[in-house]
Design a binder for these strands. Sequence first.
RNA 1: GGGGUCGUAGUUAAGUUGGUUAUAACGCCGGCCUGUCACGCCGGAGGCCGUGGGUUCAAGUCCCAUCGACCCCGCCA
Length: 590
Amino acid sequence: MSRFIEEEKRTHYCGQVSARDEGNQVVLFGWVQRRRDLGGLIFVDLRDREGIVQIVFDPDSDEALHAEARKIRGEYVLAVRGEVRRRPAGMENPHMFTGQIEVTVSAFEILNEAKTLPFSPEDEDVSENLRLKYRYLDLRRPAIQKNLILRSRLAIATRQYFNENGFIEVETPFLGKSTPEGARDYLVPSRITKGAFYALPQSPQIFKQLLMVSGFDRYFQIVKCFRDEDLRADRQPEFTQIDVEMSFITEDDIINMMEGLMKTVFKTCLDIDLLLPFPRLKYADAISRYGKDNPDIRFGMEIVDLTDIVKNSGFKVFSDAAGSGGAVKAIRAEGAASLSRKELDGLKDFAAVYGAATLVWAKVNAADWTSPAFKFLTPQEAETIGLAMNATEGDLILFTAGTQKVVSDVLGNLRLHLAKKLNLIDPKALAFTWVTEFPLMEFSETEQRFVSTHHPFTSPFIEDLPFLATDPARVRARAYDLVLNGSEIGGGSIRIHRRDIQAQVFSALGLGDEDAREKFGFLLDALEFGAPPHGGLAFGLDRLTMIMTGADSIRDVIAFPKTQKAACLMSEAPSEVSSEQLAELSLKIV
RNA sequence: GGGGUCGUAGUUAAGUUGGUUAUAACGCCGGCCUGUCACGCCGGAGGCCGUGGGUUCAAGUCCCAUCGACCCCGCCA
């Protein structure tokens, strides 16, 4: 047993020793970041989660101690007692927080040795493969520790805020019932009921509504959710939501409460003062101006609709699209006429990914355009377009034509792509916007039926109810997303609290009475036992943390994330299980 | 399911039109060194070139397949 651990208590974290401690004895625990053995003096940079301090072993003061210190190697775990000393004049290190001082060691113990690590916590360019395999070493890196520490503070500030506002944190089950709508479920086989499965929750949606029926009035939970879909840089199969629900409220009540949360956590975690209220944008405007329901409004370059101008044009690509219910739209990149032919081809390839059959470019000159399309347009058409685009010499205009959806997708993504390429985005900006009045449902080509835009419990606008049976696409939902810098960080809605309206919505979704009964019977029952008007919202904690830390990948804000194939390279999950385990669950691998 | 980028000492990379013993830096090991902080100097060890197959007199290099990581499309109520 270590004498140090038994007899000594840590007095400081390494990163927190300062000139104020000069002359004092300190006890430190930490890892060896680096050693510099000068033959006589030995310097060691000792690291813990709060930072690094230089410790010194001097052969003149204690020869035996110094001899022992020669055994020290990288990433050894040390316990150290010593005196804080101001460094000799000229020996200060201005690049270190603790660079004014050092600790001269009077006693120490090697608590554990370490083999040479696959990579050092100091390394910045390590393949992600390796980082994920040795995640516990990756997590020694200050940059990742900083992210997880901020995440912790964010969660704590959130709990504090909701507590102060009368919310009650309730845990809901992970072993639930599979539902037909939405993402693919992660399934858990039941041992007791052969052939039956639990589903891990995609969100605690129904449970939180039931808590409103129970009268909890204000609920929140910081909770894991599970969706068995393909991964992206900002998507993991298990992720964390800040889940909220309130009774007897309107959209504005929820929006105000959530804006308050944002203001609080940005102040607490980053000391940033947000301006309230956040702007609001109707879904239809978000699509028409930015091509996306999660618009990045940190920069302009809004989409301009040219359909009316070109519907009778001699340029077939434009007039055909305009004449067949599609659209012709464009964006203008200021001063981007200098892009090379190769770069323009690159933009075409980029646009093709989103279904663009055509991407027409035009470089604006003083009197005309340099453009493959210029000869197909009359001078008046070009001039009218130029006016509509507010074009000036040196600008680049990018047109696309096609269905409404493709045109929005293409220009919406091109707009983001160009903004990054042309450095139009202020990295410090925090552009919040609410997006409201989503369509309640959209027609799914793959399923050949209407599916919920958010989820089937979202309340329609009461005045749109008549269209539910006749023209479902026209029904607006009382839903709202919170978008920050082009990332959907939260979404919610006022819920349906009336049994009859819920039945109408299920019906419009093609969910028959019997199906609805079987899948959501308990919710339908609950709506008949005095369900209050209620609504709520859920934030993506991971995405919010990403933005607050500036992380490029969601994996950098999750302690033990999965790879794109949803595997854990460290623990090697998922893995095969024994035939005994399978037999117990009545499962067979086919 | 589809498109793209990548895989060479412990790590990060270089490796020409296919051609002798596969380079470098950092790290590691040993020696020297009493004010370093990316310490310095000297010496040394370290390779399944992701894996399998093919073409060839000859493959890190060319071809095919496969595995893995990342980015994107589809998917993600």
